[in-house]
Design a protein around this nucleic acid. Structure first.
Length: 906
RNA sequence: GCGAGGGUAACAAAGCCAGGUUAAAUGUGCAGGACUUAAGAUCCUGUCUCGCAGGAGUUCGUGGGUUCAAAUCCCAUCCCUCGCACCA
């Protein structure tokens, strides 16, 4: 039943193309974008949230009279789709079962046949694009699909080429060497996805300083993360299990481990003439510490990993747990003095940590690792170099940079990159660090660029507001970003077609293309390409000088662009802040000006499922399609709207969904039993209508701040509660609904569009509620006096209840006597403190007033009349008779005060 | 470590930016009642402590401070979550 209604309206919206807005010059427009989905799988309840919130906002802006464009496209560039296709080709079991499941969800009839096509990346992207369109349609999204395009589309790729040529001409692209994780066997860079346990145990790149220790015939190269400790070196360690090689590096001869040779090659350190060297030939020699010139020996140690870094390490027992422990065990040398001083309060010294953690031997690897982490961290942040070094007084942080630079400058060392842990790909080949030569970067580090980005951020709006500060920080923190790679799908870099533009970099200003993709596509189809000058004439101020037969389309493309761009609101999730959204801001600043720049950004929180992060391993993935089938689009939408504030996390919890589902049922019942009953309203009906319009005002002001949750609690839940209350008070539901039906359905339509459309047609008009504008609030509403009066009645009820509770009296009669006229007359003087204006014969009330003044709630209505009007309600509420009188003033004893009548139970 | 967000009643979760109208929304749970042959659904009432008259007391991680007044502002401290990059 519900799904039939939803389908019906989805079809009608689509057939009438009501969400494909045309340019209307002079009408205020609103362009809202949400990041385009990546087309590698099905969407779950978490994905749905941001899109749903986007749709709610789009629909809200429509009812506020904006010409709203809510476009969508698909992201297909990058590596995931490609690697899925490759895995399909390899018949990878896990991938096949995952995609079988996806296809099953989508009700695919011939799964094996469909899977066969998935060896082709385009087929995967195509299939899931269509699946997502289907999902979004079933959720009732008011998306303009006529403008959709994908990042793999040639028309769009010409646009990206234009963008990169512009960036390059403005000097925003640079080149340089860049380290990245690499598989030698596959001859490919590897991402987190390619590494075994890469998602749970992240692999990062660490920058070692490889230090050359000169000997009579060759140098030993030991690598360290802490070059400042060379002043405390006592000896070198090599592994008894390792193989070491003598190689030529330029004119120098150096010795490193076998594994290190490969790293040197990958990292562009050219070496030649390698041959293995016997361990004894190393052990019998002495070597010299660079800078200090100290002569040291080489010792064997089991704890040295020949595969790590150079396979040779230098020993600093005063500042390294392992070296200290190893030395204590051999007892060969005494522990040398420290070269780094710690604050007196610090307990982080080698000796303390070793004894505290009870480390006995080099085989206590876990404890040693823990102690090492503490020591390195504390020395880095609070250590000061002491007088045994020439760097006395410098912090460890400063000293490290100094020594490193010194070694590099004098050719006494070089940079060696290493993985933070031993890593291998999912297929089992080694992951090492390679240095890519001449990597292309977008130079986000440029200060002038950052400055103008900060200016833009100052002008933009953020929801919630604290995001503004975070974006300033993020811009400051950005460095050069590698923007192209050698594999993956995407656009070729126009100045260097060997490279493919990386998938975040090709999607920074793409919302621009939503404005005129049909025109661009038509020109592309006619010309076979979109050249630089043509795009320039559309997206900048330059004029079009191309072929005449495209002239009209170019002008139309430009008109669309001028009307629709910039993006009034971009809505996405927090992981995008430090990358996509920052790039989005900076690329806009680089290429556009004025009204074409972004207006506002809002961030929605993440979605958990049953309290846990959504993931296949947790088994808590709930697909969107499944939710729509089991509940309905409107129930899901209501849950998303009201379940949590836009910026906080939302938990997908079926119990809570059930609550919303019940509320929707009640709403349906109310709407089904509605018949138009215009006519005069009594007091309580007047109260309801007043309350409604007061809630509608709250709704508008909250929605203008995108406080969707507040807005809909007010206009849906609280209005529903008011309706229940109205019934209890004897009001006529249909009479009041006749007064508010238009406003209510229009206001609710952003969240529950299908039901609103259904009842709009049934009860109001045959136009589309989705396109209606919210009418003004009628004159005289909300009627504050009536609202106050009802509050007053409820306060009396509360008081009676409390008295019953405190006294355990079951009243037969409730007597309420309201404020005497004499007290009411002088009350304003009392409230103002003008005690002198109080007539002599009434002065006796002053002491009583002083005592209870905090309990008085002044009330401007006619209390007697209001209470008399509520007599019936009071009697049914308490099941006894209810009498109202005007009290007489009493000199001794208690009096009735404004808003605080006397209550007596009998 | 740095950066950001957060710690509120049995639980979940508002309020905090713009201090008083806050014993503190809302939902769940729990208790009592209404309706029902019964169950369910729905509705009402209650749910920190004390109170035979509408009141009082003690509460919003912990410890201080500002103020006539603090869940709300400031300082310190403990704990939790997320991000720290090339991955979409």
């Amino acid at each position: 039943m519900t799904s039939e209604i939803e389908r019906k309206w989805q079809d009608r919206w689509k057939n009438d193309s009501i969400f494909e807005p045309a340019v209307i010059e002079g009408k205020k427009k609103f362009l809202i974008t949400v990041p385009w989905p990546y087309t590698s799988g099905s969407l779950h309840v978490g994905h749905g949230r941001t899109y749903t919130l986007g749709d709610i906002i789009a629909r809200y802006k429509r009812l506020r009279g904006y010409n709203v464009l809510f476009p969508m496209g698909f992201h297909q560039s990058g590596t995931p789709v490609l690697s899925i296709a490759q895995k399909m080709l390899r018949q990878d079991k896990a991938t096949i079962s995952l995609y079988t499941e996806y296809l099953h969800q989508y009700g695919e009839s011939d799964i094996p046949a469909r899977l066969k096509t998935f060896t082709e990346p385009a087929a995967i992207a195509e299939y899931f694009s269509n699946a997502i369109i289907n999902d979004f349609t079933l959720l009732g999204f008011s998306i303009d699909w006529s403008r959709r395009f994908t990042s793999a589309e040639p028309m769009y790729q010409d646009f990206v080429s234009w963008q990169f040529k512009k960036l390059n001409s403005k000097g925003y692209l640079t080149r340089g060497d860049y380290p990245l994780l690499y598989s030698v066997e596959d001859q490919n860079p590897v991402g987190e996805d390619d590494i075994k346990d890469g998602d749970t145990d992240k692999v990062t790149i660490e920058e070692f300083t490889a230090v050359k220790f000169k000997g009579s015939e060759f140098s030993l190269v030991a690598a360290s993360l802490r070059p400042e400790t060379i002043y405390g070196i006592t000896n070198l360690w090599i592994s008894p299990r390792g193989k070491y090689f003598l190689v030529s590096q330029g004119k120098e001869k150096i010795v490193v481990s076998e594994k290190c040779l490969m790293k040197l090659n990958l990292q562009g350190k050219e070496v030649s003439d390698s041959h293995e060297i016997k361990m004894e030939d190393i052990l019998k020699k002495e070597f010299q510490v660079p800078i200090t010139g100290k002569k040291i020996k080489v010792l064997k140690a089991d704890f040295v990993d020949p595969d790590n870094a150079t396979g040779i390490v230098y020993s600093v027992p005063a500042h390294s747990i392992m070296d200290y422990v190893a030395l204590s065990v051999t007892g060969e040398q005494s522990i040398p003095d420290k070269i780094i001083d710690m604050p007196p309060t610090s307990k982080s010294t080698v000796e303390n940590l070793v004894s505290k953690l009870g480390i006995k031997s080099p085989s206590d690897t876990e404890k040693i690792a823990e102690a090492t982490q503490i020591l390195y961290r504390d020395e880095f942040y609070s250590g000061i170099m002491n007088g045994l070094t020439p760097l006395v007084g410098k912090t460890v942080q400063e000293a490290r940079a100094d020594v490193r630079q010194n070694l590099l400058d004098q050719g006494l060392g070089f940079v060696l990159y290493e993985t933070s842990r031993k890593a291998e790909t999912r297929s089992g080949s080694d992951v090492l660090v390679a240095v890519v030569k001449n990597q292309w970067f977008i130079d986000y580090s440029r200060q002038d660029w950052k400055d103008s980005s900060h200016d833009l951020i100052d002008k933009m709006s953020f929801y919630p507001e604290y995001l503004k500060r975070i974006f300033h920080d993020s811009i400051d923190w950005l460095r050069q970003r590698p923007c192209a790679r050698k594999r993956g799908l995407g656009t070729r870099l126009p100045m260097d077609p060997d490279w493919v533009i990386e998938s975040l970099s090709d999607s920074t200003i793409y919302p621009a293309v939503y404005t005129n993709s049909p025109q661009l596509r038509s020109i592309y189809d006619g010309k076979g390409s979109l050249d630089f000058d043509l795009l320039d004439s559309i997206f900048t101020d330059s004029t079009y000088r191309g072929e005449d037969r495209f002239y009209k389309t170019v002008i139309e493309a430009k008109r669309q662009w001028n009307y629709w761009y910039g993006v009034d609101l971009r809505l996405t999730t927090s992981p995008h802040i430090s990358n996509h959204l920052s790039f989005y801001i900076m690329n806009h600043v680089a290429l556009f000006t004025g009204s074409k720049l972004p207006g506002a950004i809002s961030i929605s929180g993440t979605v958990t499922s049953k309290g846990a992060k959504i993931g296949k391993s947790k088994g808590n993935v709930v697909s969107l399609l499944n939710v729509v089938e089991r509940y309905s689009a409107d129930i899901y939408r209501l849950f998303v709207a009201v379940g949590a504030d836009i910026s906080t996390d939302l938990d997908w919890n079926e119990d809570d969904v059930g609550v919303h589902s019940k509320k929707i049922d009640q709403f349906v019942q109310i709407m089904e039993s509605f018949t138009n009953e215009p006519g005069d309203m009594d007091y309580i009906e007047e109260w309801f209508v007043s309350s409604f319009f007061s809630r509608l005002k709250i709704f508008i002001s909250e929605m203008d701040q995108y406080a969707i949750r507040h807005a809909y609690i007010s206009i849906f839940h609280e209005v529903m509660n008011d309706l229940k209350y109205l019934e209890r008070r004897g009001g006529r539901v249909n009479v009041v609904l006749s007064r508010i039906m238009r406003h209510w359905l229009i206001a609710l339509s952003p969240v529950i569009p299908h039901l609103c459309e259904e009842y709009w047609h049934k009860n109001v008009s045959d136009s589309y509620v989705s396109l209606e504008t919210l009418p003004d609030i009628p004159q005289g509403y909300p009627n504050v006096a009536v609202l106050r009066a009802e509050e007053y009645v409820n306060r009396i009820i509360q008081d009676v209840r409390e008295i019953i509770k405190a006294t355990s009296i079951q009243p037969k009669t409730i007597q309420v006597s309201t404020v005497p006229d004499k007290i009411l007359q002088i009350y304003p003087h009392l409230a103002k403190g003008d005690l002198s204006k109080i007539p002599q014969d009434m002065k006796w009330v002053i002491p009583e007033y002083m005592k209870i003044r905090n309990l008085i709630s002044p009330f401007e209505g006619d209390e007697l009349a209001i209470l008399n009007g509520s007599k019936q309600y009071m009697e049914s509420t308490f099941g006894c008779s209810f009498q109202v009188t005007k009290a007489n003033p009493v000199h001794k004893g208690r009096n009735a005060w404004p808003g605080r009548p006397l209550i007596r139970l009998e």
